[in-house]
Design a protein around this nucleic acid. Structure first.
Length: 483
RNA sequence: CGGGGCGUAGCACAGCCCGGUAGUGCGCUUGCUUUGGGAGCAAGAAGUCGUAGGUUCGAAUCCUAUCGCCCCGACCA
């Protein structure tokens, strides 16, 4: 829509300055605000409601694959970090330490968890004795702290909310199966619930989690052409089991190390949601996670009109709530036009306008946020029509984003071409590739693009030389500049 | 953590160069009129000029330090 601008006041144009747009939308829509400590974030009720919806959907998916929730402590003894060499090396620069308690210097400093692999490992070594105890499938909904030099609301903050799943298995093969299963769970959440298309794949050696055997991720493409890692799943092999002595007696009587797995997704998903669907009028929430799915804007001139409208609005709210719709009637003393813009900015997927004309015909004017399409819907048809519209919006958002992703995925075979893409429109660059950390680092240095993943879907791959090195490629890899 | 930019009312900004009683627009409060795409008029409230120190008779303005935010680089969910 070319006249988008006339609907909007006060929001920076998305194409003009993307990160400014991003920050403004978050703050004006009241999703979040800055905390007093550098890199911390206050998640406001509207943003938290969104997180709760994402939580509910993801939690349900976890429970479908037998994962149970638990809680583990925030503070972790320093010694725990020293047990897994790669792990400590990876996290050392980002740790926050508690060195005093009860007015005294502590004997052993305590780290504020950056992730819980170590403290989980400690518990699992005590809990697991027999193959009959396996697998252990636990998930934690918590906060973690990672000291960051450069922070952005939702995408990178020093403290963030997430879930971290931790499982222990009889074999690396079992662990691998679980690793992939959880990756698939994230893919489904992202695509089906957040309408955010992703590419699922394996991380390179260079990009994998500190202490992991293999790391998988889902990668989404934001509308500014940068990639966002939206969820990760790690096969830790026996690394943590050896460091924390997680052993079991197998059926053959032998003591064996477990293989462990961890997987995580954070409030970063909210950042992804904003950058995937938002437009120059503000946010666009997919109906499945929208804190408010439908907002009712009443319209009247005279008092008797107002009371007639109020009767219909009340009836509608009752009816929609009974159908499980997250609905809100906006009776504030503002003009309807003002409210339209306000709720569009906050991303509410459907608006229902109810005025004297609608009272007369016992219908409502239904307006979609994503394309502003309007239709008059008789009240008795709403029970059917509204869920249908939610479905259409959900699908429409996904398809629009998928089309964007497809249109911004460039297959190149030549490094000059690669550089051109990264210098221009950016997006995903798909190349034939053979694992090579040195080449990866050089490419990063020269183009700022990193290897996002080796997609699981290798459809269309034919043997040929790897980009940059010319070695025989083992598959497609996806490069992009990333958040 | 390096380079650049910016901190003045809830928000966006002017004033600073050249020191002399704190401004504009939006928002907010009250009243009346309005209300189908950001309403109008009238009256009103609101700012230790990021913070600390210094220069000066006098500092938003000049100097020093410090904190925060934004953008660009090195490290990361």
């Amino acid at each position: 829509m070319s006249d988008n601008a006339k609907f909007v006041e006060d929001i920076t144009d998305k194409d003009d300055d993307f990160s400014k747009w991003y920050n403004e939308v978050i703050r004006k829509a009241e999703l979040a605000d800055y905390g007093p400590v550098r890199g911390t974030m206050i998640i406001r009720p509207y943003g938290y409601a969104l997180w709760e919806n994402i939580q509910k959907l993801l939690d349900t998916r976890f429970k479908e694959v037998d994962v149970e929730n638990a809680y583990f402590p925030l503070l972790i003894p320093k010694s725990f970090f020293e047990r897994e060499a790669e792990h400590i090396e990876g996290f050392a620069p980002e740790l926050a330490w508690v060195t005093r308690g009860g007015g005294e210097e502590l004997e052993e400093p305590l780290a504020i968890r950056p992730t819980s692999e170590t403290i989980i490992g400690h518990a699992y070594s005590r809990w697991i004795q027999s193959y009959r105890d396996l697998p252990v499938l636990i998930n934690l909904w918590n906060n973690v702290v990672r000291w960051e030099k450069r922070t952005t609301l939702f995408l990178r903050t020093s403290e963030f909310l997430w879930q971290e799943g931790h499982s222990a298995h009889r074999s690396i093969e079992d662990a691998e199966e679980r690793t992939r299963m959880m990756l698939e769970t994230y893919r489904a959440l992202a695509e089906e619930d957040l309408a955010m298309p992703v590419v699922a794949g394996r991380k390179s050696e260079n990009e994998k989690f500190a202490g992991a055997l293999r790391t998988y991720s889902i990668e989404a493409l934001m509308s500014d052409g940068k990639a966002l890692q939206a969820g990760t799943s790690h096969n830790l092999g026996e690394n943590f089991a050896r460091s924390f002595d997680i052993q079991y007696s197998d059926t053959d009587g032998q003591r064996k190390y477990c293989a462990t797995v961890s997987w995580g997704a954070s409030t970063r998903l909210i950042g992804g949601l904003i950058m995937t669907h938002g437009d120059n009028a503000g946010l666009i929430m997919p109906p499945k996670v929208a804190p408010i799915q439908a907002v009712i804007v009443p319209i009247w001139r005279k008092e008797e009109e107002k009371s007639a409208v109020a009767v219909l609005v009340e009836q509608l709210v009752k009816r929609l709530k009974a159908n499980g719709v997250r609905v809100k009637a906006d009776w504030r003393e503002e003009t309807p036009g003002w409210k339209y813009n306000e709720w569009e900015m906050r991303g509410v997927p459907v608006r229902l306008e109810v005025g004297p004309r609608d009272v007369k015909t016992n219908s409502v004017m239904l307006v979609r946020r994503d394309n502003r399409a309007k239709e008059a819907v008789p009240v008795e048809a709403l029970d059917n029509r509204l869920p249908q519209v939610f479905g259409e919006v959900q699908k429409g958002l996904f398809e629009r984003a998928l089309k964007f992703q497809a249109g911004n995925t460039h297959e190149v075979s030549d490094y000059d071409e690669f550089k051109q893409v990264m210098a221009g429109q950016r997006g995903f660059v798909k190349v034939k590739w053979a694992e090579d950390t040195e080449a990866e680092l050089k490419i990063k240095e020269e183009t700022k693009a990193t290897l996002r993943c080796v997609p699981l879907d290798q459809a269309g791959f034919t043997p040929g030389p790897s980009l940059f090195t010319g070695k025989p490629a083992t598959g497609y890899a996806l490069f992009a500049r990333a958040y």
